[in-house]
């Protein structure tokens, strides 16, 4: 039975097992490859997307649980790369290998949406769920702070 998802404001109909995790639906069936597979057990955050604006681990989220919710992936954040988080990530040259960064960026953008001007500690805590194996943690935290300055008070 086909399931209709709303991904980056577009309706997508998928005729696949409703238990399929959103991550694999996006990657293997919708063709959106920006969301990354890291661990498959919601531990690393590489697969973070938004579901109704909330950051979620798509690797453990079956599409049956998504319903009519609005899904936003890294491709839908700002395709031109002009979101303050994306700009800050570029300005501070955060990435090394870059693989975890889609998840980092989606987590960070959600953090700022909820709390546009977080304290240093709130940034550290808010980003602690996402692993970066290259160890770009300082720049991740600095970039969230920089993006926060770009968000109008």
């Amino acid at each position: 039975m086909a399931i209709t998802l709303t991904i980056n404001r577009k309706k997508v109909s998928l005729d696949i097992d409703s238990n399929t995790p959103l991550l694999w639906a996006l990657r293997d069936h919708v063709g959106l490859l920006g969301t990354k597979f890291g661990c498959g057990i919601a531990q690393c955050g590489a697969c973070t997307v938004w579901v109704n604006g909330e950051p979620m681990r798509s690797c453990v989220l079956p599409i049956s649980a998504v319903g009519n919710a609005q899904i936003t992936t890294i491709e839908g954040l700002d395709p031109a790369g002009k979101h303050p988080i994306q700009e800050a990530w570029d300005e501070l040259d955060v990435a090394q290998c870059g693989y975890c960064q889609a998840g980092q960026i989606m987590t960070a953008a959600a953090l700022l949406k909820k709390n546009p001007h977080p304290s240093k500690q709130e940034i550290v805590d808010g980003m602690a769920g996402n692993i970066c194996r290259c160890g770009t943690y300082h720049r991740i935290q600095e970039a969230v702070a920089l993006a926060s300055k770009k968000v109008k008070k």
Partner: peptide, 17 residues
């Protein structure tokens, strides 16, 4: 700045996977 920064922040398919 890294030459792939834009590709990374917009989620372009650049990896082996």
């Amino acid at each position: 700045r890294g030459v792939d920064n834009q590709a990374i922040v917009t989620g372009k398919p650049v990896f082996g996977i």
